[in-house]
Computed example of a mutant assay.
Amino acid sequence: MLRAPASYRGWVPTRDHRLDRAKGILIFTVVLGHLLARTSPWDDDVLRAPMYLIYSFHMPAFVFLAGITAKSTRLPERVLTFLVLLFTVLPLLWGWMWVFDLNPDYDLLTPFWYTWFLLSMACWIITVPFIERFPRTLLVTSVVVGLFGGILPVLDMELSASRSMIFWPFFVIGKLYGKQILDWAGSLHIWQKLFFTAAAFGSVGYFYLDEVYYKWFYGSLNFAHFDVSIPEGIGIRLIVDIGALLMTLMLLMWVGDKDTIIAKIGRNSLAVYVLHGFVVRGLQPWLRDIEDVLNAPMIFLLCLVLALLATYLLSWGPFERGLRWYSSTVTRLLLKPFASLRAKPGKHSDKASS
């Protein structure tokens, strides 16, 4: 049975290339999925298969990995970093889409497209101290919220509320048990890995053959939008989550631990995530027209090459360093007026220990 250590649960003391490699693979699937999404893939039997494969797990797995490395130290800085990126990317992305004569679907209360993750990360990080203090309570709470949150009619795409609730259990599990799960997955025998791999692909096959409505994987809508009863909605949500867990386990089983180009991409995955939207939307008019010229297998091959190229180029070190420098600098400036309100190191610790 997996148990959260009493001290600093989920902490990873040194750089773990397995995490980097997993992030590298996942950020590539994000780019590939968003490129394919510009070509109406859900209406084609060929393109729908990789879309089910990608969307069945890539964001839950990303959230799980984020939980592993989440810390409660310097909490205001960590939260503000994601908010700074969110409020910087949104207007730039709206302007970028205006240049290409695309509809940005402007709404102040709804983070546009992939920027929901930045807001949700800020929300999940706020919960880290509570996860560390009340691990079992927060684990149960997150699972209940994730499964039953779709009942609430007032929480949907606004403020990324639905996604924050639905994917929160993956963050909590990653924080409490992620390192142990990572070690366990890597230590399995080959026949065990093959068994879980078959189960993972079996779940994706079920989604594909049963034509499960793809928006269930987005986690952005409540049950009312799917026109299902509450028991049915909870059941579908549970099946989708189990599929995501199986696929995440499969990734961790085979990811390997060598420090290769995949690991380097994973280390710079924040830059790839933030910047790839501009590449994808810039290519959107062209990808939309390419459907009339190429068949589905060729479209997939083209998007695959474009995703590989975009992921590699956007993982260039200066992009990541520049993005982190910018977000940390703005964060420091925002927090500077409140510096006097923050306790100085050692000032109160002596009283507490006396």
Rank of each mutant, 00 (worst) to 15 (best):
T88K: 00
I242G: 04
R321Y: 15
L323Q: 07
L119E: 02
V204G: 04
G282R: 01
D350M: 13
Y208N: 09
I265W: 13
L32A: 04
L309N: 02
R237H: 08
Y114E: 14
F196P: 06
F28R: 07
F195L: 15
F117R: 06
L238W: 11
R321E: 15
L119G: 07
G266W: 08
F62K: 02
F170W: 04
G243I: 11
V274F: 04
R332Y: 11
A244N: 01
P111F: 03
D43M: 10
D259R: 00
Y218D: 10
V128H: 06
V228G: 01
R267D: 13
R18T: 10
E211A: 14
S40E: 15
L118A: 06
L304Y: 11
G95Q: 05
L2A: 09
L86T: 02
L92D: 07
V255G: 06
S162V: 02
A296Q: 09
G205S: 06
D101E: 15
P5V: 11
L75K: 02
I230A: 10
P231W: 05
V128M: 03
S164L: 06
R281D: 13
G146C: 06
D101G: 12
V212A: 02
Y312P: 04
F148K: 07
R332A: 14
L92K: 02
R15D: 12
F207T: 05
R9P: 12
L176S: 10
L301V: 13
W184H: 11
F117V: 08
Y52I: 07
A6N: 12
Y312C: 10
L32S: 06
K258Y: 12
D241N: 15
L323A: 11
D210S: 14
L102T: 08
G202F: 01
K179T: 15
L245S: 06
T197R: 05
P153M: 05
L246H: 07
F217P: 00
V46W: 12
G146R: 00
K175V: 06
Y208M: 09
S220R: 05
F62M: 12
D350Y: 11
K258R: 14
P345S: 00
F196G: 06
M97Y: 00
W124A: 01
G346I: 07
G24L: 02
P345K: 04
L249N: 07
V330Y: 01
F57K: 03
Y106S: 11
L221P: 05
V280G: 01
V140Y: 09
A22Y: 09
V12I: 14
L176P: 04
A61W: 09
M121E: 08
A185C: 13
R237K: 12
L35R: 03
M97C: 05
L83F: 00
I236Y: 06
V228T: 08
S315H: 00
V212L: 15
T331K: 05
Y208F: 14
